[in-house]
Each structure stands twice: as structure tokens, then as C-alpha cells.
Design a binder for these strands. Sequence first.
DNA 1: AATTGTCTCAACCGCTAGTCA
DNA 2: CTGACTAGCGGTTGAGACAAT
Length: 321
Amino acid sequence: MRKPDSPAKNTTTANNNTGAVNKLRKGLWSPEEDDKLVKYMLSNGQGCWSDVARNAGLQRCGKSCRLRWINYLRPDLKRGAFSPQEEELIIHLHSVLGNRWSQIAARLPGRTDNEIKNFWNSTIKKRLKNASPNNSESPETKEAVSGLATLNEHEIMAMCMESSTSSSTSSVRAMYNNASDRYDPLPLPCFGYGMPSYGPGNYFHDSVGGGNAGVESGLFGSHGMVIEGGGGGLIGEGELYVPPLESISLEDNGMTNNNNNNNNNGNDNNNDMNKAISGNSVGGNNNGNYWEVENMRMGEWELDDLMKDVPPFAFLDFQVE
DNA sequence: AATTGTCTCAACCGCTAGTCA
DNA sequence: CTGACTAGCGGTTGAGACAAT
């Protein structure tokens, strides 16, 4: 943890330093600063982060405010220890996506890229290493990693349930109940498609009336997070494959996210999952929506191709007016 | 009880990409 | 086209917490 710089040391008042820009604070955030930022964000929503810093009366750079909000203050954060299911999912996603922490985080409701990155570097990495102290390419290690490429359907559902009933949901409800009978959430920059239960259009809107948004919309459902194997190939029947963001065709869902322009070509995804989906037509579990992924290999999927003919983003009601 | 080593994680840094004048 | 500005990402740092000696 970094020591919070004292305000006296870091703040140069404009009074006795004409023309000088106030020195920005660094280091740990004080409760008062947190309070200021939370209050500002809840009442004004996210705008330009440098404006947020200025208007909230914080001697912080916008970048610092953004980080603090995203990683710590955002009301929907889950916090606490990672569940075994989350852990498995992280390992699996990392085997598919590599160190794309933000994309991994986008598939884990209430978790931040920073949190996942730390968890990976401190815990999982070590665990996988310990599983095979002599050789990282040993069968044990391969099993530890590739064995997680498929997740048990019930485990996924359990994660959906856990996610949708998490205490963070309640806390968000509490924060928004006074203002409205539905959750008009603050914009959450890292939540794009691929995180449907919190994503645009699904974000808690149905939860207030007793519905269960996380389950109804499907933690991995409507945007095609999980492809159910049809038997044969590496994805067995009843097993679930979580495709990389870049690989998901949204055409059948009629949904896309213009914000996701990350044109990763997936060259580092040359693992067995390619073989698994290549030559196996796998159907989505989304009420009859199917993605035809026949003949597709990750390295060949270009985002431009995926995005063409996709109708404009149809759900922007979470945007701050 | 004191010291040392290790772990955890909040926050920073540097970089890239997108936007706009 | 260019440069300034901003958002976002991944890597790294470092201080506090905790465990071991």
C-alpha cells in the first residue's frame, strides 16, 4: 500500500503561488476523498475524468479518480475472496484470452481487471506452478489448465445464481432505490457485451420487481458467453465453452457494442480450443439463438467481419443524460 | 518479543488508441 | 495531417499485513 501524501505537503494553494497549478495528490485515498468522489459520481455520473476530479473538489488527476472509482468505489463491485467457480473461470479465460485482464474481468460480474490481475499473479500462477514444480509443460500442468477449458454446466449456473444474488446487488439496490424504482446505473466503462447480467440493457432493470436479472438474461446467455457442446470434439455434450469476445458473432442476437473495438486477432489463442470449435457446429444456449462457428478459427476472425451487418447498438438507456 | 521473509493489493507508470479542433 | 487531450489497458511498485524463525 502506498502512503497517502499529506495534503499539506502536496497541495500548493493558488493563493501564494499565482499561476501555478495545484499539486495533485498521490498515494492512498483518504475516506474523505472517497466520499467526495462517490457523492459526485452518484449525483453527476461519469463525465470527463479530469472534470470529475476538478468538480468533485479533489486534488487528484482524472486518471487517479477513474482508477479509484473503477477498482474500488463502484457500487456494483463484489469484493471479497474469489469463489472456486470464479477461480476456475479465470483460469479458463486466461488460457483463452491470455493477459487481457479487462476482457477477463468483463466476464466476471463485480470483479475488476486489477483485482483479477493481482489474484492471478499472486495466487493462481503460484498454484499452477506448484502443481508442477519441475516442468511447466508436464501433464499435470496441462491438465490443470486445459482441464478447465470446459466447465461443468451446473457450475456455470451456480455462478449465475451466485452472481445474481450477491450482496453487491443489494448494495446497488440500496444506493439507487431512493432515486428511482429501477436502476439507472452509472456508466460502467468496462461493462460491455460479454457481461450480460450487468451489461447495457440488462443492467438490473428487471431486478427490482422481483425478477432476477442475472439469471433471466443469463450471466453468459444473451450475448453468447457460453456455447454448449453438442458432443464429439473437445467440447463434449453438456460441457460449456466460453469463447473469446472477438470470436462471438452477434448477428443472431441483433446486438453489438460499438465501444468494443479491440481488434485483437487472437493470434495467441492457438490452443486446443481452436480445434474444439473448428469443425464442430456448436449451438448457443440462448433460447434458440445459435452461432454457426463451423470453419471458424480464432486467428482468422477479424472484428471487422464480425461487426459488419450488425445493427447499431440498441440499448443505451444506461447512458447518463 | 523481535526480526526477517513473503504475500497481498491499491495505486502508479508508461503506453496505445480514439477523438477532436 | 497534426498535435493535444482523454480513456483505457497491462505491467510494476511498494507499503501494510501476516507468517515463520
